[in-house]
Design a protein around this nucleic acid. Sequence first.
DNA 1: AGAAAATGTCAACACTTGTTGACTTAACGG
DNA 2: CCGTTAAGTCAACAAGTGTTGACATTTTCT
Lengths: 181, 181
Amino acid sequence: MMKPLTTKEKILETARQLFWTRGYSNVSVRDITGAAGVDAALVSRYFGGKQGLFEATLAVIPQWPALQAEPEHVIEEAVASFSHPFDRDCEEANPFTMLLANIIDPEMGDKIRDLVQTALAEPLAEKLGGDKRHDHAAMVLSTLFGMALMRKNFRLHALKDLDTEEIRARNNHLVQSALKF
Amino acid sequence: MMKPLTTKEKILETARQLFWTRGYSNVSVRDITGAAGVDAALVSRYFGGKQGLFEATLAVIPQWPALQAEPEHVIEEAVASFSHPFDRDCEEANPFTMLLANIIDPEMGDKIRDLVQTALAEPLAEKLGGDKRHDHAAMVLSTLFGMALMRKNFRLHALKDLDTEEIRARNNHLVQSALKF
DNA sequence: AGAAAATGTCAACACTTGTTGACTTAACGG
DNA sequence: CCGTTAAGTCAACAAGTGTTGACATTTTCT
């Protein structure tokens, strides 16, 4: 028994779906409002414009669950969160996909970079601990995002049909050796 | 004593610089012709339009030099080619940057994915050899692009000030363990 | 020199973009 | 019931997009 979405919520949800998969500047206000079945003027009215709408989608980014885990389980949780299959060539709107989709955006690139630094790299480093925690965090993220990039964006044939367990095993193998550096 | 560039060459060179760093749909025809100091109409005249101009820039992609090396040196050459420093926050137009800048482009994404598969993954797999050559190629590319992504696009602080040798050492460490899988 | 072809210029087109203001309609409170 | 506020619709704007055709200029060839 879900309460039906308000118009404002419909816009925000559709915007999240489109912005996070196609990237900020590849999505027009009319793309969003068209898909949501509402008037285009409401974006400026409710969110102060396209830019405000995008930032509103960022505000509801769930915390990376891996960062909530006990320090000794952070790695396995992080690996797990990058190991589920991507919907078969269809678009899935998760925070990591969003980061990959907006890295070079001319208007939002800086905001995205800041988000990676403050919401992923720094908390992960503190969880990992140790003298080289910042280096380790960077290399763990590098490993996980590298595999995500190959699977989701470049869609390499060799990685296409691997199931969750196989991906998790490979991610774990790579991450463990990154931590041994 | 360089022969001065023809107008057509000026357009192509400027287009390569801009397309490869900002991505196809983040660059307008007038951006290019403005920077090149020529008339905007010449793009359609010489290259058949914006799309044709972009594809012309892809045609001059140099072969990945690592793929020309002897099989026993392929890995070290590949690692080396991903280890030089990125120009300090200024845009460098190399083929790998281009691939990262265009992965989610709504018009060119398919072409980029195809390029990665046929120009990088498959030749690399053949050079590596062995039963798991396709898996190994995918994981090597994953490792190298992962680090490139963290350095060039996300600009993680922890990786910012590392010199070529340090990056090469880390890339090599990760790639070697990827091959041990 | 004169014809022909290449080269470059200019203005305009049809279209999409984000945003705004005026308008109509619905909901709520007294 | 009426007045006020919220919610949503509509048409239009100014700016930017890729592309085109007509024109002017220069170069090339005979």
